[in-house]
Design a protein around this nucleic acid. Structure first.
Lengths: 350, 350
DNA sequence: ATAGATTGTTGAACCGCTTCGATGATATCG
DNA sequence: CGATATCATCGAAGCGGTTCAACAATCTAT
């Protein structure tokens, strides 16, 4: 492997000149720069990452802490990861992948100076990683919103707004009895931050709009989806609107509703909170609030880069606005009443 | 950050002694070792990864090249990644994540000495990455089996054997008209290695067992699955056995078969090639050949480590034996005949 | 013509660790 | 008892870059 000295020799300049050509931190005359660049090309020279990291205290690597268990939401996670990796490359950064499960990971890569910044996803309200991230010498960006985020940058979809938007949309269409199928019980109990916030937003909007609102958990499997639909319809048999915030269960929920003889959107309107491709790839495109996973990943990287370039930069929290797109699965209660018994309509007036 | 010199000073020894305590490459007396270890603990010392890499030409990082596009088989990919990351940690290695799309990635991390080895997944017959991997100074391990694998280590499920096993199983149950739904057209055309081999194995076994065999592609979506099922039943209306090698389409295929009025396994036996959790999590557990993704990821890492510890170690190819597990979706043609018209049975005798 | 500023390049120190050869102290043997 | 082997530790030379102070050469203003 050619070293920087080999290049310098070949170009007839000092090693520092080569370094400055590479980094652009000092002006180099045209002819000199050309000679150096030729030598680099001829020798196929590539700076040694370790040497560079040692001398400059920059690794050009960021750590990404991701939940790699076979999770309910692999699709969403994958999209986050893709967004992060792609954005990182645009800043000339590579990504070191850590699993949530490897508790020592954060400390290891941080105090070992393996990375310049850390991005952690799937953050819970009281996430055990928070103290580690605060203690790290490198800036950290969380994808999610923990209870205590002092000194840490956070990005996420405005899930409170997302929850509210779904209710507002359904209420606007005339629905007054609304149900919600959410995360699996485990996520619910873990107080994963996104889920708590969706629920609050929905509750808040339901209260202020005066509509009844019933939310229950939903497992990710086909069987679980059927059970949850059954239970929800038992608890609140008169609902005409349903919010589903569970990517994995989505298709099964739709199927289960049909199995009960309910037509979508004639008998029941359905709005999802999920990545866009999931909403549009269904046989009947779903009205949905998009989870812009790729965009969030990109913002996370950008925030990390910002804090690297200006260490004085204070931590900030950025919540991306929720946008609801109406597709084929929601309709006004009025038009629904045309195709169904008067019961539903009268209930709507209660 | 404390350096090795700080530790040496605190322990009253030379820096090299500290280094040898850490690496164990030279014997150190009990008392000395104890003093050094105490100093390390007191100072919270962690070796600087860059410095270490520079001095030892070992980074303790491996690169993993993964297809991060939202692929049909996110679940499987995720499982490979998990297997690799977990296994890597057991060897005290971290994982740098590269995307397939970033063509420069392999060369960058290789010639920049960012990693000690490279693992590439989702290999095609004539994969454009092969020349890059051969040119790399670091050992490479492929998950998949390209046409030309000289000098490269490969691991994969024995997909030829898997394809053969599905046919053998169905033939053993008396089925003589067998259909197969495979990868999407794109994968088929790309000659992704696993799919070609499954097909060959199935064909080979079908020929030798004298059963008729019809395979067509299948897209990953619900709509695509329905279309493929319809087309297959048009081309080969008399099939009593079906092999599905397409994780994403699996549940939709099952649903589509039911929609045609066929009961599983009474009217048609179904065997899948997919990760185990997918087969068992269906409402009706599927007879399947397991894709042991986690295990393959682990083997890939182990092979890489082996070649690192002994550079003379020649490249080898390891194909994990395919194992078929019978569950609820396959039955003998005889018992099927009891519940169906004589037509099927007579065709079975042809 | 000369002091001062600007531009382009260099030499050398340093980043933090590994590893090899050397050294002194003990143990082993004929 | 002296010669030799063994054990534990040390000093110093890299590994391959970055960066700073300094210097030479050229340009501007007086």
């Amino acid at each position: 492997m050619a070293t920087i000295d080999d290049v310098a020799k070949a170009a007839g300049v000092s090693t520092s000149t080569v370094s400055y050509v590479l980094s652009g931190k000092r002006p180099i005359s045209g002819p000199t720069r050309a000679r150096v660049e030729k030598a680099i090309r001829d020798l196929g020279y590539r700076p040694h990452a370790g040497a560079r990291a040692l001398a400059s205290s920059r690794t050009n690597v960021i750590a990404l802490v991701a939940p790699l268990r076979v999770a309910v939401n692999v699709n969403v996670i994958m999209e986050f990861v893709t967004g992060v990796v792609t954005a990182a490359r645009n800043h000339n950064y590579d990504v070191l992948l850590l699993t949530q499960e490897d508790a020592t990971g954060i400390d290891r890569v941080s105090s070992g100076s393996m990375v310049d910044a850390i991005i952690a996803m799937d953050i819970e309200e009281d996430d055990p990683r928070i103290p580690l991230l605060k203690a790290a010498r490198q800036p950290a960006v969380l994808i999610g919103l923990p209870r205590d985020n002092a000194g840490l940058s956070c990005v996420d979809l405005d899930f409170f707004g997302a929850g509210a938007a779904t209710i507002r949309h359904l209420a606007h269409l005339g629905h007054t009895r609304i149900g919600m199928l959410g995360a699996p019980t485990a996520v619910w109990q873990r107080h994963t931050s996104f889920w708590d916030r969706t629920l609050s937003g929905a509750h808040y909007e339901a209260t202020s709009k005066g509509v009844t609102f019933t939310a229950i958990p939903c497992e990710a499997s086909e069987v679980g989806a059927h059970q949850s639909v059954t239970e929800l319809l038992r608890k609140a048999p008169d609902i005409t609107g349903l919010v589903v915030h569970n990517e994995a269960a989505l298709p099964h929920v739709v199927a289960a509703l049909r199995d009960t003889g309910r037509a979508i959107p004639e008998d029941i309107s359905v709005v999802a909170i999920c990545p866009q491709h999931l909403a549009t790839s269904q046989p009947q495109p779903l009205t949905s609030v998009t989870i812009p996973a790729t965009a969030i990943g990109k913002v996370a990287v950008d925030m990390a880069m910002q804090r690297l370039s200006d260490p004085e930069q204070p931590a900030e929290t950025r919540l991306l606005a929720a946008e609801l797109t109406q597709r084929a699965t929601t309709a006004t209660l009025h038009s629904a009443a045309e195709n169904t018994s008067g019961d539903t309509a009268s209930i709507g007036l209660m």
